[in-house]
Design a protein around this nucleic acid. Sequence first.
DNA 1: CACGATTTGTTCGTATGTATT
DNA 2: GAATACATACGAACAAATCGT
Lengths: 137, 137
Amino acid sequence: MISGGEFDPDIATWKQLAERLRLAIRSGELPPGQRFPSELSLVQQYDLSRITVRRALAQLRNEGLIVVAKSRGTFVADQQERTTVTLSKGDQVQTRMPDPEERRRYQLNEGEPLVLVTRADGTTEGYGAHRVTLVGG
Amino acid sequence: MISGGEFDPDIATWKQLAERLRLAIRSGELPPGQRFPSELSLVQQYDLSRITVRRALAQLRNEGLIVVAKSRGTFVADQQERTTVTLSKGDQVQTRMPDPEERRRYQLNEGEPLVLVTRADGTTEGYGAHRVTLVGG
DNA sequence: CACGATTTGTTCGTATGTATT
DNA sequence: GAATACATACGAACAAATCGT
Protein backbone atom coordinates (compact mmCIF):
# COMPACT_ATOMS: atom_id res chain seq x y z
CA MET A 1 0.00 0.00 0.00
CA ILE A 2 3.10 2.19 0.18
CA SER A 3 1.31 4.93 2.16
CA GLY A 4 -0.52 7.97 1.04
CA GLY A 5 -1.09 11.55 2.04
CA GLU A 6 -1.37 14.66 -0.03
CA PHE A 7 1.29 16.13 -2.26
CA ASP A 8 3.08 19.38 -1.58
CA PRO A 9 2.06 21.74 -4.40
CA ASP A 10 5.43 23.50 -4.18
CA ILE A 11 7.36 20.41 -5.27
CA ALA A 12 6.90 18.59 -8.54
CA THR A 13 4.45 15.77 -7.94
CA TRP A 14 6.51 13.21 -9.85
CA LYS A 15 9.48 13.92 -7.58
CA GLN A 16 7.39 13.35 -4.47
CA LEU A 17 5.92 10.14 -5.84
CA ALA A 18 9.39 8.91 -6.77
CA GLU A 19 10.56 9.63 -3.24
CA ARG A 20 7.72 7.66 -1.68
CA LEU A 21 8.32 4.68 -3.92
CA ARG A 22 12.07 4.95 -3.35
CA LEU A 23 11.58 4.77 0.39
CA ALA A 24 9.21 1.83 0.01
CA ILE A 25 11.91 -0.06 -1.85
CA ARG A 26 14.77 0.88 0.47
CA SER A 27 12.77 0.04 3.57
CA GLY A 28 12.17 -3.45 2.25
CA GLU A 29 8.43 -2.95 2.01
CA LEU A 30 8.86 -3.88 -1.64
CA PRO A 31 11.49 -6.64 -1.72
CA PRO A 32 13.87 -7.21 -4.66
CA GLY A 33 12.33 -9.24 -7.46
CA GLN A 34 8.80 -8.49 -6.36
CA ARG A 35 6.18 -7.23 -8.75
CA PHE A 36 5.95 -3.47 -8.64
CA PRO A 37 2.54 -1.73 -8.77
CA SER A 38 1.43 -1.19 -12.37
CA GLU A 39 1.21 2.30 -13.81
CA LEU A 40 -2.57 2.09 -13.81
CA SER A 41 -2.77 1.07 -10.18
CA LEU A 42 -0.51 3.96 -9.19
CA VAL A 43 -2.63 6.33 -11.26
CA GLN A 44 -5.73 5.19 -9.38
CA GLN A 45 -4.15 4.97 -5.96
CA TYR A 46 -2.68 8.47 -5.99
CA ASP A 47 -5.21 10.06 -8.34
CA LEU A 48 -2.50 11.25 -10.71
CA SER A 49 -2.16 11.28 -14.47
CA ARG A 50 -0.22 8.55 -16.18
CA ILE A 51 2.32 11.11 -17.35
CA THR A 52 3.19 11.99 -13.79
CA VAL A 53 3.41 8.35 -12.73
CA ARG A 54 5.63 7.46 -15.67
CA ARG A 55 7.92 10.34 -14.89
CA ALA A 56 8.43 9.04 -11.38
CA LEU A 57 9.01 5.48 -12.60
CA ALA A 58 11.54 6.70 -15.17
CA GLN A 59 13.50 8.30 -12.35
CA LEU A 60 13.56 5.10 -10.28
CA ARG A 61 14.55 3.12 -13.35
CA ASN A 62 17.45 5.49 -13.95
CA GLU A 63 18.51 5.00 -10.36
CA GLY A 64 18.56 1.27 -10.88
CA LEU A 65 15.89 0.63 -8.26
CA ILE A 66 13.34 -0.92 -10.59
CA VAL A 67 13.43 -2.89 -13.84
CA VAL A 68 10.69 -2.27 -16.39
CA ALA A 69 9.71 -4.98 -18.87
CA LYS A 70 7.37 -3.99 -21.68
CA SER A 71 4.02 -5.75 -21.51
CA ARG A 72 5.18 -7.80 -18.53
CA GLY A 73 5.35 -5.27 -15.79
CA THR A 74 7.69 -3.52 -13.45
CA PHE A 75 9.80 -5.20 -10.79
CA VAL A 76 12.01 -4.20 -7.89
CA ALA A 77 15.61 -4.54 -9.07
CA ASP A 78 17.85 -7.22 -7.68
CA GLN A 79 20.90 -5.36 -6.46
CA GLN A 80 22.98 -8.43 -5.81
CA GLU A 81 24.09 -9.36 -9.30
CA ARG A 82 26.98 -7.03 -10.03
CA THR A 83 30.10 -7.84 -11.98
CA THR A 84 33.32 -6.68 -10.37
CA VAL A 85 35.74 -5.00 -12.75
CA THR A 86 39.29 -4.34 -11.62
CA LEU A 87 40.95 -1.11 -12.70
CA SER A 88 44.71 -1.37 -13.08
CA LYS A 89 47.33 1.28 -13.65
CA GLY A 90 46.84 2.88 -17.05
CA ASP A 91 43.18 1.96 -17.34
CA GLN A 92 40.66 4.77 -17.71
CA VAL A 93 36.92 4.98 -17.14
CA GLN A 94 34.29 7.40 -18.35
CA THR A 95 30.59 7.28 -17.63
CA ARG A 96 27.61 8.80 -19.40
CA MET A 97 24.25 7.90 -20.80
CA PRO A 98 24.75 5.84 -23.96
CA ASP A 99 23.59 6.69 -27.43
CA PRO A 100 21.37 4.05 -29.10
CA GLU A 101 24.27 2.27 -30.76
CA GLU A 102 26.10 1.91 -27.47
CA ARG A 103 22.89 0.68 -25.89
CA ARG A 104 22.70 -2.12 -28.41
CA ARG A 105 26.38 -2.94 -28.30
CA TYR A 106 26.53 -3.26 -24.54
CA GLN A 107 22.98 -4.50 -24.04
CA LEU A 108 21.97 -1.75 -21.65
CA ASN A 109 18.57 -1.28 -20.12
CA GLU A 110 16.56 1.80 -20.96
CA GLY A 111 17.82 4.65 -18.82
CA GLU A 112 20.90 2.78 -17.66
CA PRO A 113 24.17 4.76 -17.69
CA LEU A 114 27.15 3.34 -19.55
CA VAL A 115 30.47 2.61 -17.88
CA LEU A 116 33.22 2.64 -20.52
CA VAL A 117 36.56 1.15 -19.54
CA THR A 118 39.56 1.88 -21.72
CA ARG A 119 42.40 -0.46 -20.86
CA ALA A 120 46.03 0.52 -20.93
CA ASP A 121 46.45 -1.49 -24.13
CA GLY A 122 43.77 0.54 -25.90
CA THR A 123 40.93 -2.01 -25.79
CA THR A 124 37.59 -0.89 -24.46
CA GLU A 125 34.86 -2.59 -22.47
CA GLY A 126 31.37 -1.34 -21.76
CA TYR A 127 29.12 -2.19 -18.83
CA GLY A 128 25.69 -1.27 -17.63
CA ALA A 129 26.10 0.99 -14.63
CA HIS A 130 23.60 -1.02 -12.61
CA ARG A 131 25.44 -4.27 -13.13
CA VAL A 132 29.04 -3.39 -12.41
CA THR A 133 31.24 -2.40 -9.52
CA LEU A 134 34.66 -0.96 -10.25
CA VAL A 135 37.50 -1.71 -7.87
CA GLY A 136 41.04 -0.40 -7.78
CA GLY A 137 43.89 -2.83 -7.96
CA MET B 1 19.16 23.83 -40.31
CA ILE B 2 20.30 20.37 -39.15
CA SER B 3 18.72 18.58 -42.15
CA GLY B 4 15.30 17.12 -42.55
CA GLY B 5 13.57 14.28 -44.24
CA GLU B 6 10.76 12.13 -43.03
CA PHE B 7 10.77 9.89 -39.99
CA ASP B 8 10.72 6.12 -40.11
CA PRO B 9 7.38 5.05 -38.59
CA ASP B 10 8.97 1.85 -37.31
CA ILE B 11 11.30 3.67 -34.93
CA ALA B 12 10.24 5.97 -32.12
CA THR B 13 10.29 9.50 -33.48
CA TRP B 14 12.07 10.91 -30.47
CA LYS B 15 14.93 8.50 -30.99
CA GLN B 16 15.32 9.50 -34.60
CA LEU B 17 15.21 13.18 -33.74
CA ALA B 18 17.79 12.65 -31.01
CA GLU B 19 20.02 10.88 -33.49
CA ARG B 20 19.82 13.74 -36.00
CA LEU B 21 20.61 16.32 -33.37
CA ARG B 22 23.39 14.15 -31.97
CA LEU B 23 25.03 13.94 -35.37
CA ALA B 24 24.65 17.69 -35.83
CA ILE B 25 26.55 18.24 -32.60
CA ARG B 26 29.26 15.67 -33.25
CA SER B 27 29.84 16.89 -36.78
CA GLY B 28 30.50 20.37 -35.47
CA GLU B 29 27.51 21.84 -37.27
CA LEU B 30 26.40 22.96 -33.82
CA PRO B 31 29.59 24.05 -32.01
CA PRO B 32 30.05 23.85 -28.22
CA GLY B 33 28.54 26.78 -26.38
CA GLN B 34 26.26 27.67 -29.23
CA ARG B 35 22.59 28.27 -28.74
CA PHE B 36 20.61 25.16 -29.47
CA PRO B 37 17.29 25.37 -31.35
CA SER B 38 14.44 26.00 -28.93
CA GLU B 39 11.80 23.39 -28.28
CA LEU B 40 9.25 25.41 -30.18
CA SER B 41 11.46 25.83 -33.23
CA LEU B 42 12.08 22.08 -33.32
CA VAL B 43 8.35 21.44 -32.97
CA GLN B 44 7.69 23.64 -35.97
CA GLN B 45 10.64 22.52 -38.07
CA TYR B 46 9.89 18.83 -37.76
CA ASP B 47 6.13 19.10 -37.27
CA LEU B 48 6.23 17.15 -34.02
CA SER B 49 4.57 17.53 -30.67
CA ARG B 50 6.43 19.16 -27.85
CA ILE B 51 6.41 15.90 -25.92
CA THR B 52 8.37 14.19 -28.65
CA VAL B 53 10.85 17.04 -28.90
CA ARG B 54 11.34 17.14 -25.14
CA ARG B 55 11.94 13.41 -25.01
CA ALA B 56 14.71 13.76 -27.58
CA LEU B 57 16.28 16.69 -25.74
CA ALA B 58 16.16 14.80 -22.44
CA GLN B 59 18.14 12.02 -24.06
CA LEU B 60 20.85 14.37 -25.34
CA ARG B 61 21.01 16.04 -21.95
CA ASN B 62 21.53 12.68 -20.30
CA GLU B 63 24.34 11.99 -22.73
CA GLY B 64 25.98 15.23 -21.73
CA LEU B 65 25.75 16.68 -25.22
CA ILE B 66 23.54 19.64 -24.36
CA VAL B 67 22.90 21.77 -21.30
CA VAL B 68 19.38 22.97 -20.63
CA ALA B 69 19.03 26.22 -18.71
CA LYS B 70 15.54 26.86 -17.46
CA SER B 71 13.91 29.84 -19.12
CA ARG B 72 17.20 30.73 -20.83
CA GLY B 73 17.46 28.12 -23.49
CA THR B 74 19.40 25.08 -24.51
CA PHE B 75 23.06 25.06 -25.41
CA VAL B 76 25.59 22.68 -26.85
CA ALA B 77 27.71 21.45 -23.95
CA ASP B 78 31.25 22.68 -23.62
CA GLN B 79 34.00 20.16 -23.60
CA GLN B 80 34.29 20.33 -19.87
CA GLU B 81 37.51 19.69 -18.13
CA ARG B 82 37.35 16.36 -16.46
CA THR B 83 38.73 15.76 -13.02
CA THR B 84 40.98 12.74 -12.90
CA VAL B 85 40.28 10.45 -9.97
CA THR B 86 42.73 7.69 -9.17
CA LEU B 87 41.37 4.36 -7.99
CA SER B 88 43.67 2.50 -5.64
CA LYS B 89 43.49 -1.00 -4.26
CA GLY B 90 40.47 -1.37 -2.01
CA ASP B 91 38.55 1.52 -3.55
CA GLN B 92 35.17 0.79 -5.09
CA VAL B 93 32.99 2.65 -7.57
CA GLN B 94 29.33 2.45 -8.42
CA THR B 95 27.45 4.52 -10.94
CA ARG B 96 23.78 5.32 -11.32
CA MET B 97 21.42 8.22 -11.67
CA PRO B 98 21.31 10.10 -8.37
CA ASP B 99 18.31 10.57 -6.15
CA PRO B 100 17.42 14.21 -5.38
CA GLU B 101 19.49 14.35 -2.22
CA GLU B 102 22.57 13.08 -4.00
CA ARG B 103 21.98 15.62 -6.74
CA ARG B 104 22.13 18.41 -4.20
CA ARG B 105 25.05 17.00 -2.28
CA TYR B 106 27.28 16.53 -5.28
CA GLN B 107 25.94 19.45 -7.30
CA LEU B 108 24.97 17.40 -10.31
CA ASN B 109 23.30 18.71 -13.42
CA GLU B 110 19.83 17.49 -14.27
CA GLY B 111 20.11 14.13 -15.96
CA GLU B 112 23.78 13.69 -15.08
CA PRO B 113 24.77 10.26 -13.77
CA LEU B 114 26.52 10.01 -10.41
CA VAL B 115 29.91 8.40 -9.94
CA LEU B 116 30.23 7.27 -6.33
CA VAL B 117 33.70 6.38 -5.08
CA THR B 118 34.02 4.49 -1.83
CA ARG B 119 37.60 4.55 -0.58
CA ALA B 120 39.28 1.71 1.22
CA ASP B 121 39.00 3.68 4.46
CA GLY B 122 35.23 3.93 4.11
CA THR B 123 34.97 7.54 3.02
CA THR B 124 32.93 8.34 -0.07
CA GLU B 125 33.25 10.89 -2.86
CA GLY B 126 30.72 11.75 -5.53
CA TYR B 127 31.31 13.18 -8.98
CA GLY B 128 29.23 14.17 -11.96
CA ALA B 129 29.74 11.58 -14.67
CA HIS B 130 30.37 14.24 -17.29
CA ARG B 131 33.18 15.82 -15.34
CA VAL B 132 35.28 12.95 -14.13
CA THR B 133 37.66 10.36 -15.51
CA LEU B 134 38.63 7.40 -13.37
CA VAL B 135 42.09 5.94 -13.72
CA GLY B 136 43.61 2.86 -12.18
CA GLY B 137 46.70 3.23 -10.07
C1' DC C 1 -4.74 -21.93 -30.89
C1' DA C 2 -7.68 -17.92 -30.22
C1' DC C 3 -9.30 -14.14 -27.65
C1' DG C 4 -9.55 -10.72 -24.31
C1' DA C 5 -7.35 -8.43 -20.41
C1' DT C 6 -3.22 -6.44 -18.79
C1' DT C 7 0.80 -3.56 -19.09
C1' DT C 8 4.22 -0.69 -20.93
C1' DG C 9 5.67 2.51 -25.07
C1' DT C 10 4.71 6.33 -27.94
C1' DT C 11 2.31 10.32 -29.50
C1' DC C 12 -0.91 13.83 -29.96
C1' DG C 13 -3.47 18.04 -27.76
C1' DT C 14 -4.02 21.54 -24.13
C1' DA C 15 -3.22 24.30 -20.08
C1' DT C 16 -0.78 26.61 -16.34
C1' DG C 17 3.33 28.00 -13.77
C1' DT C 18 7.83 30.15 -13.41
C1' DA C 19 11.96 32.38 -14.74
C1' DT C 20 14.50 35.02 -18.08
C1' DT C 21 15.02 38.44 -21.69
C1' DG D 1 4.62 44.73 -19.11
C1' DA D 2 5.27 41.60 -23.10
C1' DA D 3 7.50 37.90 -25.35
C1' DT D 4 10.23 33.86 -24.94
C1' DA D 5 11.43 29.36 -23.07
C1' DC D 6 11.50 25.53 -20.10
C1' DA D 7 8.77 22.54 -16.27
C1' DT D 8 4.85 20.33 -14.86
C1' DA D 9 0.48 18.21 -15.44
C1' DC D 10 -4.08 17.02 -17.08
C1' DG D 11 -6.63 14.02 -20.82
C1' DA D 12 -6.92 10.77 -24.77
C1' DA D 13 -5.65 7.33 -28.08
C1' DC D 14 -3.36 3.61 -30.29
C1' DA D 15 0.48 0.10 -30.72
C1' DA D 16 2.90 -3.90 -29.16
C1' DA D 17 3.89 -7.62 -26.28
C1' DT D 18 2.54 -10.76 -22.68
C1' DC D 19 -0.50 -13.67 -19.97
C1' DG D 20 -4.54 -16.26 -18.41
C1' DT D 21 -8.67 -18.53 -19.78
